[in-house]
Amino acid sequence: MHTPTDTLTRFYTAFAALDADAMGSCYSLTATFDDPVFSLQGQHDIAGMWHMLCAAASGQGRQDWRLDFSQLQADAHTGRAHWEAHYRFSVSQRLVHNIVEADFTFTPEGLIASHRDAFDFWRWSRQALGLGGWMLGWAPFFQRQVSQQASANLARYLAKNR
């Protein structure tokens, strides 16, 4: 059994090292994950997302990858963290600096029960997608399109790798 603070430290330390196995082990079997792109239920799908994203970051060259995390706060039930990822987006090869605020709930065993990441999608899309993201990244239909494409990519990844 781990405290929620231990879980968050273990999660973000693993994330910085692109260790998706260790990240996935921080979630309960029935965990949920939400951010502007993904909405997932269950440890299997959440861990699969982290595997896919970590593989993409590793594949672009670790020289472009950096994760900084701070402001970890947790009690027995809830937690928060601030994190910033610097990476090369695999689709466009553009450098991205994503700034994220995360909120968590925990199981009695100290595992993540729910995880919600919030970031400025338009800011992210301008960096990751260039002119198209600048022109359309603010629009809800564009965010849905990106989310649908990411979900399809995850489904293909899970079918191939699990």
Rank of each mutant, 00 (worst) to 15 (best):
Q41S: 15
G79P: 08
Y87E: 12
W50G: 00
A57C: 14
M49R: 08
C26N: 00
H97C: 15
F33S: 07
L111R: 06
L95C: 10
W83M: 07
F11Y: 03
W122P: 00
Q41V: 15
G110Q: 00
G48E: 03
A47R: 07
N98T: 13
T9N: 03
R10H: 05
S25C: 09
D21Y: 03
D64H: 15
G110E: 00
T30H: 11
L29P: 00
G59C: 11
A150H: 08
D117T: 12
Q41G: 12
D35K: 09
R62N: 14
A118Y: 12
Q60D: 15
L111G: 03
D64I: 06
F119G: 02
Y12E: 09
W134H: 11
Q143M: 06
S25V: 03
R80I: 11
A74T: 09
Q73T: 09
L40M: 08
S125D: 04
H86W: 14
A17Y: 08
R94T: 04
F121K: 09
L131F: 10
L131T: 15
S25E: 13
S114Q: 07
F15L: 10
M52E: 06
S147A: 13
A118L: 10
G59H: 07
I46N: 01
D45W: 15
G137T: 05
T105Y: 05
L129D: 03
Q63N: 11
E84A: 03
F89N: 07
L40F: 13
R123W: 11
D34E: 14
F89H: 10
A102W: 02
S90N: 13
D34P: 05
G110K: 03
F104V: 02
H82M: 14
G132I: 12
R62D: 10
D117M: 08
F11K: 01
Q145T: 06
A128H: 06
Q93Y: 06
R88H: 14
F33H: 14
T105F: 03
F121T: 08
F142R: 01
D120M: 09
G61V: 09
V91L: 10
M23A: 03
Q149N: 08
W122N: 14
F11G: 01
V91Q: 11
Y12V: 08
H77M: 01
S70K: 10
I46Q: 01
H82A: 15
A118Q: 13
D64C: 15
W83P: 05
Q148N: 12
V91S: 10
H44C: 05
F69Y: 13
H82V: 14
Q145F: 04
W50F: 03
T78L: 02
I99G: 07
T32L: 04
A17D: 13
S114F: 01
H82Q: 10
D21I: 11
S58A: 07
M52Q: 14
Q148L: 13
L95P: 08
V96C: 05
M135H: 01
H44P: 05
D34L: 12
L131I: 11
L29W: 01
F121P: 02
D45P: 07
L8D: 01
I46E: 00
I112E: 02
